[in-house]
Design a protein around this nucleic acid. Structure first.
Lengths: 149, 149
DNA sequence: TTCGTTGTAAAAATTATAGTTACAACTCAT
DNA sequence: ATGAGTTGTAACTATAATTTTTACAACGAA
């Protein structure tokens, strides 16, 4: 099964905050770009806020970045939105038979391998900052704008 | 969300076939070690069979390895049991607004990063063979046996 | 021909995601 | 202070995937 779109939505939100710093980023406005319901946005934004990545003003409304783009990695976002319980990307079957030598020992061996696989994946996310992603995105936008007029 | 336990069950099954080559591996027998229902075993075994990793005899019953342990990587098992549609570990939200510059371009940028992350994870799985895993497992079993008497 | 087994379908239980409605609490401009 | 617009959150619904379970036709070997 797939990793929840909360992650991609979180990245989308932070990108919007970065690229359009002057706008009033209400959940309604953000939802318009993401293509979902404002409540979904508020929930993701709640995670980002808790993780110290975004500020959200209650009442008058509007979200802003709480950190420099250089200081936010994709892993920060990934962890913030809680898509995978830490260290548990893989689900290991839960009742191996302890009376069978294989059943009694397979779990720890499997977890070791899975941990490495997961760490490699997270390492890539940790190596990419929102600054880099937003730069690529901005270039992408500019290129299309230049091409289409 | 987590990657289905079909993967860990698949590895468990192949380990049993390797470590106890003389036994009659019916789905009932395998289910006893894995701690699940025989039908679950038959389904996973069906995937392993289709991928050319295991042989299953209908009628009289019993599964065996269809390849040398050196020639089965964890990635082979991972792909065989179909836990993640190829290239889609991450779910990207599906209706970004094409009228918004960010909405129109975020998807392809995101997919690039996600592809790299996923490839890193799969690279680790590809680097581990069932031979290595079974060796670690056998050592584990032997150590415990020596310690407990 | 009988026994034990596989392959598979179908249904149920469980769990997570995602969308939606609703509303109290909050901020700010007037 | 009050009203308009917004957030935070709960609750409900719909959807989808997983896992377990029951059932049974087809199969293989003694």
């Amino acid at each position: 099964m797939q990793i929840s779109s909360r992650f991609s939505i979180g990245v989308h939100i932070l990108s919007l905050l970065a690229i359009r710093p002057q706008d009033h980023h209400t959940s309604e406005w953000l939802a318009g770009s993401v293509g979902t319901n404002p409540v979904v946005i508020r929930r993701v934004l709640g995670h980002l806020k808790k993780a110290g990545l975004a500020n959200v003003k209650a009442g008058s409304g509007g979200a802003t970045l709480a950190r420099e783009l250089d200081e936010i990695t994709l892993l920060d976002v990934y962890r913030a939105v809680d898509v995978v319980e830490e260290g548990n990307l893989f689900h290991v079957h839960e009742q191996p038979n302890p009376a069978c030598p294989v059943g009694a020992n397979i779990e720890q061996v499997l977890r070791l391998m899975m941990f490495k696989a997961q760490a490699a994946m997270e390492g890539v996310l940790a190596a990419v900052t929102m600054r880099e992603l937003v730069d690529v995105l901005a270039r992408e936008i500019e290129e299309k704008r230049a091409a289409n007029g």
